[in-house]
């Protein structure tokens, strides 16, 4: 399916924004100003953006502990996210979520989720709501190769098939489940066949190619949106950073990431494809790179200067009423 020039520029902007956000966090995390755990998504941008470019605010997604990319792709405000990661009172979640639980319900972003495999059952519920309200929305869960082995994910796939709800399961194999290779923990030789075994049609995509993911997602999401029941997308794209920031990555061969960055990077792949094909101009993409870097720079400055939560706030919002 043909993608308009405007759509391509928007997609590149989203991917570049995620990359700039993650690269900067990698640097800022070492200053000690950011508390807690950070899990970076760099390398996988084409998947989040390829999927979310097929969604609207009305559609729901639920993410993982590695959730910045999905949040940005779904339209969450980058500055509010940065403030949240810095723990500011004015952060997206008032400094109570940090990186791992970031959510914006107004954007249909039901949260990063720090419990591996926690998200898919929740997205099944959002899909049930779509069916009850007949609002035409779909619900999408993102799960890594690690989550793909959780019982909750198997349950959710089965339940979605049984209830025939508009739910899309996105499986992102990024090569590693925490500090263990996906090839070890994913027992099957053929993850696509395993997903299909649950009764879901699966669209396989190249996770380093935005166009491949976008097309797979268009079909998988269309399938679900048209009332045909759940579907799945399977894509591989290695992460560039560790499981968490500070992970020495002893499980990784030397040079693995460098080879990925130069040889099969989703942003470079996008740039090559669009400029070689004379679809976009390099200067336009360069401009987007500068703009996104500036946006992230401003977000970091704002986050560092943002007000801190007051200790009394620890008891706010535990309940709606109590």
């Amino acid at each position: 399916m043909q993608i308009s020039r405007q759509q391509m520029l928007r997609a590149y902007r989203q991917m570049a924004m995620i990359r700039a956000f993650e690269e900067r966090l990698h640097v800022e995390n070492r200053t000690g100003e950011i508390a807690g755990f950070i899990h970076l998504y760099a390398g996988q941008e084409a998947i989040a953006v390829g999927v979310c470019e097929n969604l609207t605010d009305r559609d729901h997604i639920i993410s993982t502990h590695r959730g910045h990319g999905h949040a940005i792709a779904k339209g969450c405000d980058v500055t509010a996210m940065m403030l949240e990661i810095y723990g500011s009172r004015d952060g997206m979640c008032k400094g109570r979520s940090g990186s791992m639980h970031i959510a914006d319900l107004d954007k249909g972003m039901l949260g990063a989720n720090a419990i591996v495999g926690g998200g898919p059952p929740i997205a099944v519920g959002a899909a049930i709501a779509s069916k009850v309200k007949k609002d035409g929305s779909v619900a999408v869960s993102f799960s890594g190769d690690g989550a793909s082995n959780q019982g909750t994910v198997f349950e959710a796939m089965n339940m979605a098939v049984v209830l025939k709800v508009p739910k899309v399961f996105v499986f992102e194999n990024n090569g590693y489940s925490e500090h263990t290779g996906a090839s070890y923990g994913v027992g099957t030789e053929d993850p696509v066949k395993r997903i299909a075994g649950f009764g879901l049609p699966v669209w396989e995509a190249d996770g380093t190619d935005f166009f491949s993911v976008h097309e797979a997602a268009r079909q998988a999401i269309g399938h679900a949106r048209d009332g045909n029941g759940p579907s799945a997308i399977y894509a591989e794209a290695m992460r560039y950073f560790g499981h968490f920031e500070g992970d020495p990555q002893l499980y990784r061969a030397k040079g693995e990431v460098d080879a990925l960055r130069t040889g099969n990077d989703c942003l470079l792949n996008f740039r090559r494809r669009t400029t070689d094909g004379a679809l976009l101009e390099a200067a336009e993409l360069d401009g987007i790179d500068r703009e996104t870097a500036d946006t992230v720079d401003e977000a970091v400055s704002a986050a560092k200067a943002a007000p801190r939560p007051s200790p009394e706030a620890v008891l706010e919002d535990v309940y709606a009423t109590y």
Partner: peptide, 18 residues
Amino acid sequence: TPISESSIVGAANGAALA
């Protein structure tokens, strides 16, 4: 639902958020 308690509660949670 199928016998899937995690997904029963999980689906209830997601439906509530939606």
